[in-house]
Amino acid sequence: MFEISDLNKRNQKKQKLFQILFMLMTLLLIAPVLIILGTLIYKGGSIISVDFLFTHPTDGMTAGGIFPALFGTVWLVAVALLVSVPIGVAAAIYLSEYAPDNWFTRIINLAIINLAGVPSIVHALFGVGAFVIFFKFGTSILAASLTLAIMTLPVVIVASRESLQAVPKAFREACWNMGATRWQTIRRVVLPNAVSGILTGVILEVSRTTGETAPIMFTGAAFFLPFLPQGVFDQTMALSLHLFVVSTQVPGVPEALPYGVALVLIAMVLIMNSISIAFRMYLRGKKKW
């Protein structure tokens, strides 16, 4: 028989205490956000309607809908993806399939980490200096999307690299042994088995790109435009910037309006993130080897 000593009892008590403490901290981390979400829905929910989503703002942005901002965000995200997905996937393929384990690869990895860590406003300055001024794109969807693309590139690279590396090396060797070139192996065996993982990364990037504000402020997004953009060299409104504008720059906005905009924005971001997470879990459950 084991005698439970006082020391043991004390230890066990301590353990329970710590467990509860840490659980409380976790809950406290999460609780404010749930409260905030609740408040957004409570105060902004009433304004959301089909009309709100699909009409233009009126009366100096104090009334009406958010359609041009939504439309512009779709434009910005789409163009950004067109640029960052090919580059990001190529980079991931290089890092996962070709890169030797040496100092140069380490520098690439450092650059990726830093690209993700550079403040968004510095990305904005870069966008102004490079795309707006140097390449003479002006303040346009193109300049803003390129800035966003470079800023969110690490998201695609990291997610794609992870899903490429999850494909076991034995498959590659089996393919090489049959006389397949590296590229044939990547195209026929590695990529098809990584593509869904890459997709979750892309969805995540869409969500990131949707919420970014600072990088587009001076590169292509406008406070207010009476018309929709016709092409990539036009300026556009954007949902994230619209939230900033209606909550800080416009006097006399009814209280519900910015809450409504915030609710739409946060809903878009969270829904896309949830899709990405759900997709990832679904893939994890579905064994292919």
């Binding site: 890092l95 690209l115 300055l125 590139l153 590229w183």
Partner: peptide, 30 residues
């Protein structure tokens, strides 16, 4: 094709370095 694609993905691979340097160069320029 194999060699060509190797070059393409290598360019993708070094893009992060190019962009980091690009950011520094262009903000310094301005």
């Amino acid at each position: 094709i194999d060699k060509g694609m190797q070059l393409v993905v290598f360019i993708g691979g070094i893009s992060a370095i190019i962009f980091i340097i690009g950011i520094f160069v262009f903000i310094t320029l301005e």
